[in-house]
């Protein structure tokens, strides 16, 4: 069985990249190949200049990994014990270790539970502990596999702002797989979408919206309940999709400007308030998954199989994650 097929991408130092796709699309498989856990059956992978499988231990010193559904912490011991072990394993200089631990304790608010056995921590607390563990040794690259899964709103926000801060302050490269598209919208400048083991989109979050026929929505509050709004001919495709008393919803193509539409509506009706809603990224991604969108330019089957063999049936994952 082929989990991923002819995936090719390059991530530059300091980028924050979202990696999304439905269950079983090959996200985790990709991350496991990038970290040296799995050996690809064909193709090239370079991470921070290293071959992940052959130089796994050396690579482990330069990357940090968080698997949202699995912990690397010592279950029966307090967080501080796990952190101390990592200090020794990674040979982190004491001064640097103290500095980092202090900073992370503050940013992630760990102080209250640093000395409690991990098994007694809540999921959100444990995740913050795992994040710290993954970053104590100043990795150049961090992989996060569903870091916000199962977290409450407050913990999610804490995790996101922490990642944004680390990326901004230290230039840490971040690759994030998630099912939570809020993570992507709030953190990632670039998003890659994988479906059926193939890369179907690689580009900006905004570009993702434009790629499928996404629509924006105007929510119009009228002074009084009225029949369906009388809409102008521009932009084409604009239509009322819902009426609820004095409030009406108008959908129009995401690529069109809202200005002429708003002008026309306010000219023809007595409007109390208008608000604009961006296309729901969930909806965009759902369409992308279903649409069987043919590989975008970035999916680059043209980059082909870098191993030089002609067998197209093998994985050709090439990732150059430069960290220098």
């Amino acid at each position: 069985m082929r989990a991923v097929d002819r995936i090719s991408f390059r991530i530059d130092s300091g980028e924050v990249v979202g990696y999304i796709g439905p269950n079983g699309a090959g996200k985790s498989t990709t991350v496991k190949m990038l970290t040296g856990i799995l050996t690809p059956s064909a193709g090239h992978i370079r991470v921070a200049g290293l071959n992940p499988v052959r130089q796994r231990v050396a690579l482990a010193r330069r990357i940090g990994v968080v698997f949202g559904q699995r912990t690397g912490l010592w279950w029966d011991l307090p967080l501080t014990d796990s952190f101390e072990l990592l200090r020794h394993l990674h040979r982190i200089p004491s001064a640097r270790y103290r500095e980092n631990l202090e900073l992370f304790t503050e940013l992630l608010d760990l102080g209250a539970f640093l000395h409690i056995p991990v098994r007694q921590l809540s999921l959100g607390q444990r995740m913050r502990g795992d994040l710290t563990a993954a970053l104590l040794h100043d990795p150049r690259i961090v992989y996060l596999d569903e870091p916000t899964i199962g977290l409450d709103v407050v913990s999610k926000a804490a995790v996101r702002s922490f990642l944004a801060e680390i990326n901004r302050e230290r230039g840490t490269t971040v690759l994030l797989t998630t099912h939570d598209l809020d993570d992507i919208e709030r953190l990632c400048g670039r998003v890659m979408v994988i479906a059926g083991g193939r890369l179907v989109y690689d580009g900006s979050v905004d570009g993702l919206r434009g790629r499928v026929n996404a629509e924006r929505t105007l929510v119009v509050d009228l002074a009084a309940p009225a029949p369906r709004l009388d809409l102008p001919a521009e932009p084409p495709g604009a239509r009322v999709i819902r009426v609820d008393g004095p409030r009406q919803w108008v959908a129009f193509p995401a690529t069109a400007s809202a200005a002429p539409l708003i002008t026309a509506i306010t000219a023809r009706h007595e409007v109390v308030d208008i608000s604009l809603r961006e296309p729901d990224i969930d909806e965009v991604v759902r369409r992308l998954y279903l649409g069987g969108l043919r590989s975008s330019a970035a999916a680059a089957s043209s980059v082909g199989d870098p191993s030089g063999t002609d067998d197209p049936s093998e994985t050709g994952g090439r990732s150059a994650t430069s960290a220098k």
Binding site: T35, I37, V57, A60, R61, F67, R70, L89
Partner: peptide, 13 residues
């Protein structure tokens, strides 16, 4: 249990 994955992520054999 998947714990072997976690071991492979540590800088140790």
């Amino acid at each position: 249990a998947g714990t072997f994955d976690v071991m492979l992520l540590r800088p140790a054999r």
